[in-house]
Simulated assay, not measured.
Amino acid sequence: MDNTEIIGFAAAILTTAAFLPQVYKTWRTKDVSSLSLPMLVIFFIGIVMWLWYGILKNSPSMIFANSITVISSFLLMYFKVKYTKK
């Protein structure tokens, strides 16, 4: 593993870890009032594209981070739909 991938993994861990508390808080409180569904959908599509890019570039750090973030952002979209009061 070269220095570039080490930096990539450090960035991947920090940015992915920063997103997880929001997923946990939303799951625990079921409060989705501050989440924007259009933003979540756009973010999800962007992360899927970053994952695809990481696969094409064969970048383990990008694949690792974006795989976890795809799951996390999907969960937030699911929570937004499930817990939105009708």
Rank of each mutant, 00 (worst) to 15 (best):
K25M: 11
T4E: 15
V70T: 15
T26K: 06
K80I: 04
Y24Q: 08
W27D: 05
R28T: 12
A18H: 03
K25Q: 13
F19V: 10
F64S: 09
Y78S: 09
S73R: 01
F9D: 02
Y24A: 11
N3W: 11
S36D: 08
V23Y: 10
L75Q: 10
F19P: 00
A10P: 01
A10H: 00
K82E: 13
F44T: 14
F79V: 09
Y24V: 14
P38L: 06
Y24F: 13
E5R: 00
G46D: 02
I6R: 11
F43R: 10
P60R: 05
K85E: 13
S61T: 02
F19E: 03
L40D: 10
L75S: 13
V32G: 05
Y53M: 04
R28S: 15
S72G: 15
K25P: 00
N3E: 13
Y83V: 03
K57F: 00
S33H: 12
L20F: 10
Q22F: 15
W27M: 12
K85Q: 12
N3V: 05
I45R: 05
P21I: 10
T69Q: 14
L14M: 13
L51D: 04
G8M: 06
S34L: 10
I55E: 00
Y78R: 12
S61F: 03
T69L: 12
V81H: 08
V23A: 14
G46T: 09
S72N: 07
S33I: 07
Y53W: 11
P38Y: 05
I55K: 00
K57M: 12
T29A: 09
S59T: 10
M49E: 04
S61G: 02
L20R: 00
M77P: 06
I63S: 06
Y24M: 10
I55P: 00
F43S: 14
I55Q: 01
V41N: 05
P38R: 04
W27G: 08
L14H: 03
T69D: 08
I47P: 02
L56C: 02
A17C: 13
L75A: 14
L37P: 03
N58D: 07
Y53C: 03
S36Y: 06
T84N: 15
S73F: 08
I63T: 05
L35V: 07
S72W: 00
F64R: 04
A10L: 13
G46L: 04
K25H: 12
Q22L: 14
D31Y: 05
S59V: 01
F19T: 13
V23S: 09
E5M: 11
K82L: 14
S34T: 15
Y78I: 11
S33R: 15
F79P: 11
K80M: 08
I55T: 04
T16H: 03
V23G: 10
I7G: 00
Y78N: 06
L40V: 07
T69G: 01
S72F: 00
A65Q: 03
V23C: 11
F9T: 01
A65M: 04
A12H: 03
E5I: 01
S67Y: 00
S67E: 01
L76N: 07
K57V: 08
N66A: 07
A17V: 12
F9P: 02
G54K: 02
L40Q: 13
K82Y: 08
I7S: 04
